[in-house]
Amino acid sequence: MENLERNNLLERIKLLAECIEAGNEEEVNRILDDILQKREHMLFQELGRLTREFHDALNSFRLDSRVTELARDNIPDAKQRLNYVISMTEQAANRTLNAVEGTTPICEKIAAQSRMLREQWANFIQRKMTAQDFRNMSRELDSFLENMSADTDRIRENLSEVLMAQDYQDLTGQILQRVIFLVNEMEGHLSRLVRNGSAQTPHDPTVPPLSFAPLAPKTIPDKPSAEEAHGPFVPGVIPAEEVIHNQDDVDSLLSSLGF
């Protein structure tokens, strides 16, 4: 095809040279006009092609309405979810730190008292103790043992608080899984748009041709059934009135059902 055009052009130029030599001005002008016109025609053709491609690209944006939906609804949702994750991890960290800060002084108190009692006990064993010192030691020992039970109870309580605070990993994990799912979906749509866009730029034979085949259906249906999992409640994302917020309300709902 290109060869043919080149030969054609060569023919015309040879003819042009002949006409110039022969002084045939009229023919010279005609050939020049012809060549220029052909050139203009190609330019218009190229412009037409670009316009069509631009139009198709615009259409592909419109066709991919899920992208609009993602940008309008899901991205703000995801931001809210991520912010909620930050506040949940902060709460869990504070719960843990409070429990640790509440436990440390108890341990320090027990350590100091037992150290003191041990010194007094050593004196007693070495018979370096007066009767009055012995009475003091007995009183201190008695109060130490008495407090020990309450102190260990508080330590246990604080440890249990640390244990329960770790539930944030499950709860935030479930929220993050949803955000990751959304990012994956977004990535799929965007890379399809980019692919479609680049398929229309010339001189790239490696890019597959344009396709408007619909993407795989969404895995999160628009109207979830009663058994669809939603993950933990996220304020502002899941309507508060649809959700039961504490165990007491769960219990009363169940008891109204005969449980």
Partner: peptide, 29 residues
């Protein structure tokens, strides 16, 4: 579970669950 929609709790009850605890929960519950 963290699933705490009314309809879900009802669905679990209908499926024959013996107890339902919503996360976050505590040792006493």
């Amino acid at each position: 579970t963290a699933e705490s929609k009314r309809e879900q709790i009802i669905a679990a009850a209908q499926a024959g669950v013996n107890g339902y605890i919503v996360k976050p929960f505590n040792a006493v519950t």
